[in-house]
Design a protein around this nucleic acid. Structure first.
Lengths: 339, 339
DNA sequence: TTGTAGGCGTTATCAG
DNA sequence: CTGATAACGCCTACAA
């Protein structure tokens, strides 16, 4: 650990400059001396001090990830995608989680400043202007599932609107005419977009819409459970339910069961995300499939481009498509293909 | 970003040493000048260059986390606990995931060497000797859910054996006399321990045990599904099933349903981990509750102690207790308390 | 209480 | 192809 480039140089009978050259593939080095240096360095178990390197190159080879709250399978997958892509490109990942409030985001950014070459920010709960005010302008930043309308940040989002729209459209097409929704927090960008898709689908199909059919939730199983319990007592009762994520849909299934309502007989149920467990629910849960780890991978991809091209990098706002996965919870007949 | 300590010093009309003292609370500084420096620094948006700081102090204020594979709710929770504890103590977290093989672990460690002050290693698939050979001796390391018998590393593990033992014991106590298990990979430490607990419980209770009742799984929903499908065809058929984790238990529930077996009527089912969704299954899933984020928090706590005390730090191997959570999947009657 | 100056381990710019 | 040597930004004795 305390073996430095000088030790290697001395042991190999060369100057530090030459050692540096072989470790950076910079400048020409005689093949023979290069081999000797590599050997000596290996024997000494030398590895360059990254702090010193960062100090002079002004690069840390580290990228930061700011997360709202590590919770559930969703984030686990996102990070997986982020980390794999980073690793493949020789970068490290510094994570910082649990940033629901603006103050915390701000603090986390300050803490990361100088330690990272770029940042992925995932904070669906913070609005765009607030975010903009806090984002460092000197640092490449990619927004993940954030409200970015009218901004010029690099951003990547799931097609929340399109996915919700397609799902509700599908529910209507199966003959359900009273479609309710369990929403996420109204401060949450994803949740707002999914609600918007729900409303648009109803509107475009000329279907009935009621305020009371928009039941507030919070993206947790418990929230979904409680919302569905409330929904079960509505009259007339909706005959389809679109939960803004799978966790809530699963909670809802449980509540409906308890209320002795059959799914999909009395009411069809659908979720969003298509987490791995969705297909193993009873009944198997219809959902909007999102390639979650791909989401993280793409975000990291854009960030790497921004970091490496640095100047002259075209800002891009990517929307990841979703696909409808129809299973029995919304009335698919065959038990065969439900899996 | 390019504003250095010298700029602050110049602007405040003092020397860099004084500014440094202010930012490190080291040495005495006149209250008045301290205030002025803080103000100037704030106005200039100065923040110390961490690379330079690390270079001279030989500390990075960063702790590394090596994960086998970011997968499912479990890891999400572990990281949450780790990160929160780190943040509270002013440390950053560098993560690196997807290290199933020894070679990858080794590479990741090399990559982190010098960038972190300590390491949390979670690699249940690697055996202790192999691990030991690759662990840096100069760096504080805490093992998380690893096989550590006979080693002196700091380590923290879930009481896999005890949890499994208690669960099987419980299943037997409800009158089930043919208890099967879906195991995890035999290379996985957690899985081995849970299997050991299963066997011990059967043995101690004088219950019947059969090779064929130990069905291999892989900790995924799909693995559980397939294992349960196989189990359903056994004769005589087991009347209780202990899955070594919840994901497999959920897959199993689905398969048993498809095989027209009733749970808990024909067969009781139990899992391990008690992930949030367990209680919302149909029927609600009995499981061994683990305080997962606490696991991460504790690991980080031990690591911080090791890093800060450095010398003279007593090695400790902590085992986190588990609790039995009984729900309807193993025959609890009341629908009321099943939630 | 404050300032001066040396050095942390590398890289990069010059000469040779 | 190789070797000195000046930065990089900061901390920390040691002086004042």
């Amino acid at each position: 650990m305390s073996v430095t480039i000088r030790d290697v140089a001395r042991a190999a009978g060369v100057s530090v400059a030459t050692v540096s050259r072989v470790f950076n593939n910079s400048g020409p080095v005689h093949e023979e001396t290069r081999a000797r240096i590599r050997e000596v360095a290996g024997a000494l178990r030398y590895s360059p001090n990254s702090a010193a390197r960062s100090l002079i190159t002004a690069k840390s080879n580290t990228l930061g990830v700011l997360l709202p709250d590590l919770y559930g399978e969703f984030f686990s997958e996102v990070i997986r995608g982020i980390d794999q892509t980073a690793q493949q490109n020789g970068y490290h990942v510094l994570v910082s989680s649990s940033h629901e409030t603006q103050a915390r985001i701000e603090g986390a950014m300050r803490a990361m400043r100088g330690r990272v070459d770029g940042l992925i920010v995932m904070s669906p709960d913070i609005d765009a202007p607030t975010l903009a005010a806090n984002l460092p302008d000197s640092l490449p930043v990619v927004l993940l599932n954030c409200a970015v309308e009218g901004t010029t940040y690099d951003a990547i989002t799931v097609d929340n609107f399109g996915g919700a729209y397609a799902m509700v459209r599908h529910l209507l097409s199966t003959g359900r005419n009273r479609v309710a929704i369990i929403t996420g927090s109204s401060r949450n960008y994803d949740a707002r977009e999914r609600l918007r898709g729900y409303r648009a689908a109803l509107h475009d199909a000329g279907a009935e819409r009621q305020e009371g059919w928009e039941i507030p939730g919070d993206f947790t199983e418990t929230g979904g459970y409680q919302a569905a319990r409330a929904l079960a007592m509505l009259s007339p009762r909706p005959n389809a339910l679109f939960a803004a994520n799978d966790a809530m849909a699963i909670g809802a299934l449980s509540a409906l069961r308890k209320a002795d309502l059959s799914v999909p007989g009395d009411i069809a149920v659908a979720g969003f995300d298509d987490i791995p467990m969705a297909r193993y629910m009873n009944p198997p849960l219809t959902s909007v499939h999102v390639e979650i780890s791909e989401l993280g991978a793409r975000a990291m991809g854009v960030l790497l481009a921004a970091v490496q091209e640095k100047n002259r990098h075209e800002r891009q706002q990517v929307t990841l498509p979703t696909t409808l996965v129809v299973r029995q919870s919304c009335g698919m007949e065959s038990k065969q293909t439900g899996m």
